[in-house]
Amino acid sequence: MGPGHSAAKTALRDQVLAARKRRPLEAAGGFAASVADAALAWEPVRSAATVAAYVSVGSEPGTGLLLDVLAAAGKRVLLPVVLPGLDLDWAEYTGREGLAPAVRGLLEPTAPRLGREAIAQADVVLVPGTGVSLSGARLGQGGGCYDRALPRVSPGTPVAVVLYDDEVGLAVPAEPHDVRVGFALTSHGVRALLESPDIR
């Protein structure tokens, strides 16, 4: 895929991010509570011992309550730590007091790092995004962190992108390095995306 696809991704990402900034605060708060309920109602999460997730920042769909609910349910929660080359290391979530400001405006865990391969220990992986197509093509933030990390997920492990409902089913341009996802997690539940050979 050439520069045209990158430009199309950038335009779509900008459109989604602008729409997120226009969302009322009460809508964002309602999403955080609903998505936590939706996640725990999903069988792969209910039966999981370890869940890889992330800390939302800015106008991203909120995951703060979700992390606390997962931990309260006895799940081991792994969170990403961005490495200098934009790959991801992982560390355990120990509560909000165990988070610290990091690069790119992120909040990251201060617990001991577990290594890049730790994501393979997860029974379910929840990832950020700005949109997803019905065939699982995920639109990220443009850094490629998860395209580096997701190939380490154990085969057959469900991977879901956390999005607002209107960010599912977008025409996301796909490139060869993009790792597709199998599910979208929204405030209304989990939606299975069309199967593709490289969807996990």
Rank of each mutant, 00 (worst) to 15 (best):
G62N: 15
A36K: 01
V51T: 04
R116A: 14
S47E: 15
V162H: 10
K9V: 00
A33Q: 10
K21M: 10
L193W: 04
L86A: 11
Y54A: 02
G29A: 10
P24E: 07
E92K: 05
A18P: 02
D68P: 05
L17P: 03
L170W: 10
Y164R: 11
A120S: 15
V55C: 13
L150F: 11
G169E: 08
L79M: 08
P24G: 01
L12Y: 03
V179N: 09
G131I: 00
V45P: 09
G105S: 11
D14Q: 14
E117C: 03
R152S: 12
S196H: 15
Y146H: 12
V103A: 15
G64Q: 14
V82F: 09
L170F: 12
G136P: 09
Y93L: 05
R116S: 02
V179D: 06
P112V: 11
L17W: 12
A91V: 15
V181N: 01
L139W: 00
A160F: 10
R138N: 12
A91R: 08
A36G: 08
A184N: 12
Y93C: 14
P197C: 06
G136K: 05
V35M: 03
R104D: 08
E97L: 15
W42A: 07
F183D: 02
A73F: 03
G4Q: 02
V125Q: 10
E195P: 14
V132L: 11
L65N: 14
R138S: 07
Y54Q: 00
L150A: 10
A8T: 09
W90A: 08
A111V: 09
D165I: 14
V16T: 08
V82P: 13
E60S: 12
T130C: 15
P128C: 05
E108F: 12
V103K: 15
A7W: 10
S187G: 15
E60C: 10
G144H: 02
P173D: 06
T186A: 01
G169H: 08
V127N: 05
P151R: 06
A111G: 13
P151Y: 03
W42S: 03
A33T: 14
